[in-house]
Amino acid sequence: MKTDELIRTLGADAKSTVMPLGKVWFAALLFALAAAAFLLFMTIGMRPDFMQAMETVRFLFKFVFTSTVAITAFLALRMLALPGAAVGKFGRWLLLGPLLMLAAVMLELLAIPSSDWGRRLVGNNMFVCLTFIPLVGLCPLAALVATLKHAAPTRPTLAGAVAGLLAGGVAATFYAAHCVDDSPLFVATWYSLGIAILAGLGALAGRFFVRW
């Protein structure tokens, strides 16, 4: 096929339309939130003392951290899906979640005697945490990877990893409502590890499934 013939052929297909990317992102996010909420509330549910916990700063900070991870990941992901878009500024915002967590860990270390550090770090249910954050994040990750396929990421592995961060942020936000371990020492370790597992899965999915 000559290039002129190809151009004529593409011109003949000019009227074909696909769903605008903004709408697809919106649908994917909505699905991600719904799927995560459904899985969590249908299985392990919220912690029994949820209302009392709402009054403690450690519990609330978990949501600040996880939702910061999710929101900053989404801002970067939207840019990574567009060829030639400037990602840099949004990429830097990804540091915000880890920096907040670093500050929280420092404060916790100051507030708690060192004899208690180990107990708080290990917590009550790190295995549940390491199982459920990736599990709750799987469906959201699938929806985000599908959206990446619809878009055109020129760095698919990186875009997949950031999709994993977003799925992890969403999953951890819901999981935080169940989890009774509120110490930043616990969250910084096990939540981050759970989110990192999803980021790794996302990178693999980006590498192998996001072809265009």
């Binding site: 096929m1 290039t3 190809l6 593409l10 297909d13 696909v18 567009l82 060829p83 055109a152 265009w212």
Partner: peptide, 14 residues
């Protein structure tokens, strides 16, 4: 050139 044109066409919503 051809593969780029095809990709540009199919991904013009990006």
């Amino acid at each position: 050139v051809q593969e780029t044109l095809l990709a540009i066409h199919l991904k013009r919503h990006t």
